[in-house]
């Protein structure tokens, strides 16, 4: 479990029945998560997302089933050792108010007995990673930071001992929309570099699409309605339930996930050229701004209403108003 690139997580028939509850909160949950994969658990409030996630670091003990990380049954491990190898970020952040930012970030390395010098260097590195200047923030206390800054510290604290696995429970849920966008974008960048295995809980489907490698859409008792890539879920919702969860504008969301590459056709066009790396949503906007005429693509070819429709499999001429 000490490798740095992420670990495999296997949940097999995991159930949780809370004491004095008639129904299980999680029932026969089975899922395999690949190393370095970011899996989003998405579903309505109370469907069991948090319970499912918290069984992975044994904050909640499973009633039955097995959970393995890199093949090791976590129930056989010392739970504190286990937790020191799993980054943990919660919506309420839970920074320790009586400790400075540097002390907060140093908690797990300290528990692991790292040397003072190594910890100091690591804390600075982590704060820089989440775009907080160590010389400004190290000695501040949590209450002196904004909500968005606190959440960054939460992420830095979870990453500080370089755990192969991260659990994140609605980490950006309590921030305002603008801050949330920013944190999401930064986090996406971060994950591209660190490649942890991440279980990320959210009730926000947009967030799931934006960040997830795969999304598990959950219903009551943490039943998996569909577990697939964002593009596949948007293209082929497995059920009415999933479709209703995706909601309006699914085609537009899908466009945002596809590259211009996939819709280039040969031919000439006039107007501002668009890069092949852009997403198709931007391309469609360009075409619409170009009075519906095809626009050229940098490096040759063009995109048109027809080529975008063909790539998506849906007529897009009625979208985008």
């Amino acid at each position: 479990m000490a490798n740095k690139t992420g670990a495999t997580i296997e949940l097999l028939n995991v159930s949780k029945v809370y004491p004095n509850q008639p129904e299980p909160a999680v029932e026969n949950f089975t899922m395999t998560i690949n190393p370095g994969e970011l899996v989003m658990l998405v579903g309505p409030s109370g469907c069991g997302k948090t319970t499912t996630m918290k069984m992975i670091n044994r904050i909640i003990e499973p009633s039955s089933g097995s959970i393995k990380i890199d093949g090791q049954d976590i129930l056989t491990l010392d739970q504190n050792q286990l937790r020191r190898n799993i980054g943990y970020v919660i919506q309420q952040i839970g920074l320790f108010p009586h400790m400075t930012i540097a002390e907060n970030v140093a908690v797990v390395p300290t528990l692991l007995g790292w040397s003072k010098d190594k910890i100091r260097a690591r804390v600075a590195e982590m704060l820089e990673l989440v775009e907080l200047d160590p010389s400004v923030f190290s000695n501040r206390y949590p209450k002196q930071l904004s909500g968005g800054q606190q959440q960054r510290v939460g992420v830095a604290r979870a990453l500080s001992a370089d755990p192969p696995v991260m659990l994140m429970d609605e980490p950006f849920g309590a921030t305002d929309p603008i801050t949330r966008e920013r944190l999401q974008a930064e986090f996406q960048q971060l994950q591209a570099n660190i490649g942890k295995t991440i279980v990320f809980v959210t009730h926000d489907f947009e967030e799931a699409i934006k960040l997830g490698d795969r999304i598990a859409v959950l219903s009551k008792r943490s039943k998996i309605e569909q577990f697939d890539t964002p593009a596949n879920i948007l293209a082929n919702p497995a059920s009415e339930y999933v479709a209703s969860f995706i909601g309006e504008g699914a085609a537009l969301k899908r466009l945002a996930l596809m590259r211009v590459d996939s819709a280039v056709e040969s031919g000439n066009a006039t107007g501002p050229a668009i890069s092949r790396d852009e997403n198709l949503r931007v391309a469609l906007d360009s075409v619409v701004l170009n009075a519906g005429r095809p626009v050229p693509v940098v490096g040759g070819g063009r995109v048109s209403i027809e080529s975008i429709s063909a790539a998506l499999g849906i007529d897009v001429s009625r979208l985008g108003q």
Partner: peptide, 15 residues
């Protein structure tokens, strides 16, 4: 004490 604070502490592997 905010239970989230103690949960975070447990979640990081404090005994």
């Amino acid at each position: 004490i905010d239970p989230n604070i103690t949960e975070a502490a447990r979640g990081m592997g404090m005994r």
